[in-house]
Design a protein around this nucleic acid. Sequence first.
DNA 1: GTGGTCTAGACCACG
DNA 2: GTGGTCTAGACCACA
Lengths: 122, 122, 122, 122
Amino acid sequence: MIQLNLRSGQPIYEQVRDGLRKLIITGGIPAGDRLPSVRTLAGSLAINPNTIQKAYEVLEQEGYAYTIPGKGSFAALPTDVNAERREELLRKLDGILQELRFLGVTQAELEARIRKGERPND
Amino acid sequence: MIQLNLRSGQPIYEQVRDGLRKLIITGGIPAGDRLPSVRTLAGSLAINPNTIQKAYEVLEQEGYAYTIPGKGSFAALPTDVNAERREELLRKLDGILQELRFLGVTQAELEARIRKGERPND
Amino acid sequence: MIQLNLRSGQPIYEQVRDGLRKLIITGGIPAGDRLPSVRTLAGSLAINPNTIQKAYEVLEQEGYAYTIPGKGSFAALPTDVNAERREELLRKLDGILQELRFLGVTQAELEARIRKGERPND
Amino acid sequence: MIQLNLRSGQPIYEQVRDGLRKLIITGGIPAGDRLPSVRTLAGSLAINPNTIQKAYEVLEQEGYAYTIPGKGSFAALPTDVNAERREELLRKLDGILQELRFLGVTQAELEARIRKGERPND
DNA sequence: GTGGTCTAGACCACG
DNA sequence: GTGGTCTAGACCACA
């Protein structure tokens, strides 16, 4: 389910966090559904449970997951996600757009790219 | 000119790199112009020269600057920037757009945001 | 294992890089195997760990090694080596051949030399 | 006549040395002919005469040029070139061939490359 | 004066 | 225990 690259230099817990977040965003794990348990995921990815634990903690801080002690961790609703996360994304978006423009990417190319991922019901 | 946050967890040399890249992108340092010398910048930011030098090395790998030993470092042309950097930006762009859509940002809002930074001659 | 000449004028980190690369090329360190740790090698060569680390960074840029923080550095596969490195070698090869011819080395001698290192299964 | 790249990071005096050596090797400056004077070359390349001076000194050590005080510097015969230079080239050649083989270049490709530069009268 | 290299020693994140 | 980062201070090549 989650692809790890142990050679990438990126901390493993970040890769797990990114993978889980991606699953939640894409609907692979619908809001309210239970995330795999720390031990299960650690087993299937063949890494240390502490590393999974850290990923879950960070995800919870961002608001993408919440934990019910004794029950497990669950995917949160989009509206539960930390407002800071959203602001951070918008900040990064502006920075990336600015840099791409500097590199010669035209407004038309940017708009094409932004439409490519458009969802029907927007 | 460059704002550092020594407690942010992000390495100082990366903050310096980001700050300089921003200056180059925004035209604050036009292509061909000299960047501040390692010692000068280290002094004005009150950090070690080695840390500045690492920032310059990374910036050079990205293609945003080039160094002439004994002369200084200079801002490069947009066309000199590493192709990998451009691809990395496009990858990040797609990921951010996907996450923002999940968080409820509509296509109209995204397009508005993308037009905000539009440059007249695109 | 690696011979250093501290008075040669060539930077120590380059000598370390060359020595390690040679070990990888000759199979002294098979692909996937761990290179000596920064501290270990620094100790056995009696030089500063930072100098070793710089050698490893450069080796990684060339594609001859990859690093997993907290785990160590490892020898990469030949296919992971940077394409630029290969082109640089071919460029240097042509220049050296040209100069050797100027110095009176005949085509026969060059071909003999090129066959000397031939591998059986080529 | 000599192409300098002030941005390359390679010391200018080395670029000048390489350029002059190339001219001698290729016959652009036949053996016995006078090399351009330090001041002339410094002027046409728009660099400091001290830098040219250093290039000439190194070239003389290699045996590619000799200086007659008050007369100028002259291109030497191939037989005058330092034996160490020749050995260094052969050593480098072996190292490059070994590395290229490691990178998957076959014996056939190497031989093709070595024949490409073949001179008719060898 | 500039960047490049090196040392000695320190703290931290990661797994 | 590993690599990553940072500091303080030093010397050298280059132009």
